[in-house]
Amino acid sequence: MTSRRTVLLAIALVTLLAGPASASYAGDKPLVTVMTGTITGGYAFTLGNSTYSGTLDPGDSYTVAFEPLLPADARITDTRVYVYWAWSRAGQQAVYPTMRVLARGGEQQELGRAERYVDSKGFVSTNDFFSGMDVYPVAEPGKRTTAVTVTNAADENASFVVQGVGLLVVYESPSAPRGMLWVKEGCDMLYSSYGVETGMATSRIEFEGAIDTGAVRSATLHLVAPSGGYTRTDVPEKNAVSVNRKTGDRLPAFIEGILEAIFPGYNGKEWTDAFDATEQSQVGADIREIAPYLRSRENVVTVRDNGDYLLLTNAFLWVDLGEEQA
C-alpha cells in the first residue's frame, strides 16, 4: 500500500515541476529587484500601528497610521505602500481580493496598484486560499504619507484579512551618508510540511552588483515576512536567515567554531528564530548588521522555514559607504 508520506512527496514534486506560475510551500518564487542604486540619503520602512484586521467583508475598512522617522532635510524620492493580505475567499472558494486603498498625507489620494504578488499551498485541500502582497506607489512621494486605509471593494460576498500595511520611504539628504540601496519584493510562501522538506522550504535572495567592501562602514539587511515567528506551538529553530553561508560539505561544529573565531565571516553567518510576529502584530521583521559577512559580489541571503510558516515579501539592503571621496 502506498504510504501517506509517499503521496505527499509526490504532490510536492508535481507542484514544483508545474513551472514558475505554480504555487507551493517551497521556495519557488524568489523576490524581484524593483529599486537599486547609490544615493546620499537612505530609506525608512515602518509598519506603523499595524495589527491583524480580522475578516474584512465587503464595505469594511482598515486603517494604519505612520510616523516615518526622516532627517529634517530629507527630500523624499520614492514612496511605496505594501498591503499584506491573506485568507482571500468567497465561501470556501479561493478568490483574489478587490480592495480600494487611500493614502492620507495632507490631502487624501486613491492609490493605483502597481504589483500583486500571490502564493498559496498549491494543492487541493481545505482552506487553500490565496495570500499575498499588493504594492501601491504614491503618486506624489514628496508629500509625507501619514495614514493608509484599505477597504474591501468586492461586490460579491468575498472576504480577506489584512495582516498589516508597510510604508517604504526612500529619501535624499545632504546630511546623510552615501550608500547603496537594494529594494526587493514578492511573495514566497514557505512551510516545511505536507512533504516539503526544510531544504525545499528555502527562499534565495541574490543581491546583484559589486560592492567595494573596503569602503563599507556598515550594512543593514532588513527582511519582512508576514506570519514569520508566529506559531501556535513552540517549534525550536523554526526559521533561519543566512548570509553567504555555504551549507554543503560542512565541517564538524567545533572546527567551524574555531575557524569562525579566527576568521570571522569566512563562511558567512546564520541566525535561527529570526522573525518576531505575534498574534496581534502578524508581520514579522528581521533587521541585521551584516557588514562582516559581505562579499565584493554575488551576495546571497537565504530564508529557511522549519515548521514556522511564513510569507517572505520584502528585502532591503542598505550598505553605508560613508562620505563620498573628493
Rank of each mutant, 00 (worst) to 15 (best):
S50E: 04
F316Y: 10
S3I: 15
L167G: 07
E197Y: 08
T51E: 10
G48N: 06
D155W: 04
L9R: 08
F129I: 14
I287H: 02
G284C: 08
Y266H: 14
D134A: 15
L56G: 05
L16T: 07
R245N: 03
S53N: 05
R144C: 12
V32W: 03
A326S: 13
A285W: 01
E110H: 06
A65C: 08
F263P: 00
L31P: 07
T98G: 06
A225S: 11
P252G: 01
V64P: 12
A219C: 14
F207A: 10
V162C: 12
L221M: 09
A44K: 02
L251A: 04
V183G: 04
L310P: 01
Q282W: 06
Q109S: 13
G91C: 13
S173P: 13
T145R: 02
A12K: 06
L190Q: 09
N239P: 02
R104W: 00
V148C: 05
G91N: 05
T233S: 11
Y82R: 01
T51W: 03
S192C: 13
K29V: 00
G132N: 09
I255C: 06
T313I: 02
P252E: 03
A210K: 02
A285V: 15
V243K: 00
R144T: 14
V183Y: 01
G42T: 09
G59Y: 10
T202N: 11
R288I: 04
T98L: 15
Y266P: 02
G91F: 15
A18I: 06
V162F: 03
P71E: 08
P174L: 11
K269E: 09
A285M: 13
V124K: 07
Y25T: 12
A261K: 05
K246P: 00
V235N: 00
G166Q: 02
V169L: 05
T146S: 14
T278A: 05
V196H: 00
G164N: 05
R80H: 08
G142C: 04
G179C: 08
A219M: 08
L312P: 02
L321T: 09
P226Y: 04
I205Y: 05
P141H: 01
T40M: 13
E256N: 04
G42M: 03
A215V: 14
A153H: 01
A154D: 04
T198W: 05
A158F: 03
V301D: 03
W85H: 03
M35G: 14
V319D: 03
F129D: 00
A253Y: 12
N299H: 07
L168K: 00
I11Y: 02
A277D: 01
S88V: 13
I39M: 12
V235L: 12
E323H: 07
R80L: 15
G164C: 06
V162R: 00
M189D: 04
V95R: 00
A74E: 13
